[in-house]
Amino acid sequence: MTMLHVCLLFSGLLFCIGLAGALARSHAILVLLGIELMLNAANLNFIAFWRYGPPHASGSGPIFVLFAIAIAAAEAAVGLALVIAIYRHRQSVRLQEEARLKG
């Protein structure tokens, strides 16, 4: 087992934790954080391949992660704004109660 395997296993596990959390919890903020975790796990893969993958010249791995971080920030901002909007409207942030989209 190489270092790359270790890193990939680690990111796979992190992804699964995030997935399990996002599916199991009903609080909207926790679900969002679970999704953030999955995104981070994906980022870890880029770095793992860049660091331990086959030789290459470009730094596309870190650059991809950089963009992913930027997008994640945007996603968090919009997601949490949505949570606040839903809370204002429904007085609840429990997701299974938000099945209806119509106000």
């Binding site: 087992m1 395997h5 990939l8 296993l9 796979g12 596990l13 992804f15 699964c16 934790i17 997935l19 399990a20 959390g21 996002a22 599916l23 199991a24 919890r25």
Partner: peptide, 19 residues
């Protein structure tokens, strides 16, 4: 239970695949 099961299933697929 459903959430954890699904997470475990994905892990069960991912880990052997990586190894």
């Amino acid at each position: 239970a459903a959430g954890v099961t699904i997470g475990a299933c994905v892990a069960a697929v991912l880990i052997p695949a990586i190894l």
